[in-house]
Design a protein around this nucleic acid. Structure first.
Lengths: 213, 213
DNA sequence: TCCCTGTTGTTACGGATTTCACAACCGTAG
DNA sequence: CTACGGTTGTGAAATCCGTAACAACAGGGA
């Protein structure tokens, strides 16, 4: 029953949750799939269908209780608790990630940072001491870490991913410009702005007879 | 005939292109859909199908000429030329983007940077002077810019997106944690690490009885 | 030349996802 | 207490996408 929920559906739930949080901020107490859909550019039917995978949360004629549905989604997604994150790579990108303030408020705590560069090891990034990558395996086995964030050069990324996986990590946020190879039971999300740009250019290349010839 | 190419297909092309570039680096001159697929965790059939939307690039019994196919893909995607990028928002995130070295080598040049904070205006980020956001519209009309990158707080993002769109920008890379509303002919890609994490937690929440032993 | 191996391009199939459409229902107003 | 406007939850239909399968063909070797 709870099985076979499409991944696309799971990917949309956090979007709904965020919108609901915003609505709650605005003081809204009830919202219909129609209204929510307009906000998110999603059809009302899709929202209702997505939610129906998990239960019946609405009230006919009224819509959904904003706070109630938000709580439900957070529970479904496991956002009702804190998550421990380990960051590997403290180059420019890694530092930016460590110092990014968006994770903490959502319950994602960077509890450990690793780098293979001896010059970086021992320094502090956002109040966390940088450890030697060699310690990665032992640290992960001794401390509860749920999610690994990879911010190393592409050529080193697969090795890092392998080590994370071998140490039991089952969720990886990959910033390296490559597609990691992982077992089926490991979740991976790639953050790849260059790929994103490179697919957009297809759509804008037609026109743009701009300036330079 | 060339119309109605699924967006998912377009999104995979840059991945193929990147893999081909890597193969070329390794000195490979020919590659089969089989081999390429193994590298990327994609079925050979999918690769062939994707490519078939654009033409016939392979040779039976041999496979694809690495350099030849790469050139074709770059042409299809419009990667065979330079693209001008404008960045809006020079907070921590915006600075990290401006200083990120991954765009330039792929032909994406940040030619202008904007911020609404008077304290930031006039400073230099990665050799580009920060302009006042007020100048956004006039600048975009007078200078060829192809892609807009949004790195402002969520509450200000829609307004920035609207201004970019009104100024004729038709491709937007959005780093703000929100879903921008844009006309159908504008391409948008969202970079949202928090959403990515929030969907992964669904898959790892089952086990992980935290810390234990 | 002819056969054998390997691989493409493509069509047909099937599965996955989205959209449609509507019965069931809630709350309110009369 | 009944009627009505509004909205959900959901099966069925439609669409979109991926996979399988195979005829066609290239190159090499006998």
């Amino acid at each position: 029953m709870t099985l076979e929920i499409p991944e696309v559906v799971i990917n949309r739930l956090p979007v709904y949750a965020r919108a609901l949080a915003a609505l709650a901020m605005d003081g809204e107490t009830v919202v219909s799939s129609q209204t929510l859909g307009e906000r998110l550019d999603v059809t009302p039917a899709q929202i209702r269908k997505d939610l129906s995978y998990f239960g019946r949360f609405g009230k006919q004629g009224r819509g959904y209780n904003v706070l109630g549905l938000l709580a439900k989604l957070r529970e479904i997604l496991g956002l009702d608790r804190k998550w421990q994150v380990a960051l590997v790579g403290v180059g420019r990108l890694g530092q930016a990630i460590a110092e990014y303030g968006g994770f903490e408020p959502q319950g994602f705590q960077i509890v450990a940072v690793f780098d293979s560069d001896p010059a970086a090891v021992g320094t502090t990034v956002n109040e966390v001491v940088v450890r030697d990558s060699e310690e990665l395996d032992t640290f992960l086995r001794q401390n509860p870490v749920d999610i690994g964030v990879v911010a190393v050069p592409a050529h080193a990324a697969q090795q890092v991913v392998d080590r994370l996986v071998n140490a039991g990590i089952r969720a990886i946020l990959n910033y390296a410009p490559m597609m990691p190879h992982v077992p089926l039971d490991v979740a991976v999300r790639n953050i790849d702005p260059v790929l994103a740009m490179q697919s957009m250019t297809f759509y804008i290349k037609r026109q743009d007879l701009t300036g330079a010839k």
